[in-house]
Design a protein around this nucleic acid. Structure first.
Lengths: 77, 77
DNA sequence: ATGTGACTTTCAGTCCGTG
DNA sequence: ACACGGACTGAAAGTCACA
């Protein structure tokens, strides 16, 4: 479990939390619409889960976002 | 399993395959270095797997890429 | 309304092989 | 060198009680 992975995971956690709050949704409301458990949303936002891309996709849909997963060259911005 | 998820998955599959080929790596060599199973790399590149972000992170590291997972507003570029 | 631990179930990911 | 399958194991995902 590298440091760069922990960074990735916590950045993702923050993105979810911020997007959710912008919509004025509770974790529970997000969980209900995304069809995941309320406590799993909590785990995601605390950065302690290792989610699959399917779960992330479902959550991003509810948040009105497109999930973008890219491999970027380290020289890129 | 929505269509937009299938698109996401196959785009990711293509990115991995192309990056790997650019480095002249076989699926097996990539699998060995990323510490994932050779048959799972095959599944990833065929877009029939639902990987966790940890696996994607490990693979992107071997490919010399940064894994970027973002929630983007649908109006964004 | 959220965090957390303990628990069960399901599927991601492995390991064996074949053409 | 890769697609594909079957059987297996550990981790992701789902459930619940409580603070």
């Amino acid at each position: 479990m590298t440091k760069s992975f922990d960074n990735l995971r916590s950045e993702l956690a923050n993105e979810i939390k911020q997007s959710r709050r912008l919509l004025g949704l509770t974790q529970e409301a997000l969980a209900l619409q995304a069809e995941v458990d309320r406590t799993y949303v909590s785990q995601l936002e605390r950065g302690i889960a290792n989610p699959s891309i399917l779960i992330l996709h479902r959550i991003s849909m509810v948040l009105g976002m497109n999930l973008s997963i890219r491999l970027r060259g380290t020289s890129d911005q």
